[in-house]
Design a protein around this nucleic acid. Structure first.
Lengths: 116, 116
DNA sequence: GTAATATATGAACAGTTATTCATATATTGA
DNA sequence: TCAATATATGAATAACTGTTCATATATTAC
């Protein structure tokens, strides 16, 4: 049955889409990454860490907000593997997990024509 | 005052971070893009549209869910400029806005080692 | 051991968001 | 004009999320 003017092409695309649709689990993992970096407060932390590793005190200094709020956001970024942490005495030092993180940010910034 | 073991480096990084922090508005725009693609239901639509343009009926066929839910998600993706729409008779035909969209998806998929 | 400091976390609240349902708009064909 | 079809949308609700506050844990210096 015809449901639209380009039935043949659209139907083929829909079939291909179903065949090539990533598994639910992979989609969830991709969504989780984007969700982690879709909040201004967390984006600020990532932009800050481009300058190099920092302990929580200095991250708070760089991005503003309370220590508690920043700490909660750090956990979310850490769970999403966007940042990694190591202890150094009393401090926990955070840094970007890998170069993909900056690459994604820069790709979108370029897309939006905003100066990073 | 010393607040951590690597006071000098971290303080310098924090200062640089503040100096280089994108403007609030740009951060918001970047966050909005990621938010738009951080929901499994919307990601599915984007993955589906990699196969080519489709009208709503076929998008629903490809990704599942109700027509109403898909239509709401299409609006969000459209507002975020991730997809574009054109009318073709009774149908609205959707397609990916540009190649950046797929680039971002593939970058993250690579990062996660999941087969797209 | 105790005090001080750095960081993390649970609970609660407020704000946001995805879905559903019902309905509206727009186009086509008669 | 009217019926049928495709798509969009407002309102309502349930689920989710970010922040705050209070407190817990871990490390260091004494």
């Amino acid at each position: 049955m015809e449901v639209c003017g380009q039935e043949r092409q659209h139907h083929a695309a829909a079939e291909a889409a179903k065949a090539n649709m990533p598994e639910e689990e992979d989609i969830g993992r991709v969504a989780a990454v984007f969700k982690a970096i879709s909040e201004p407060s967390r984006l600020k932390i990532l932009f800050a860490l481009r300058q190099g590793e920092m302990c929580v005190y200095h991250i708070v200094e760089a991005v503003g907000g309370t220590q508690s709020a920043v700490s909660h956001q750090l956990r979310i970024l850490r769970d999403a593997r966007m940042i990694k942490a190591r202890r150094d005495g009393q401090n926990i030092v955070y840094s970007l997990a890998d170069e993909h993180v900056v690459a994604v940010l820069e790709l979108v910034c370029t897309h939006l024509n905003c100066k990073i």
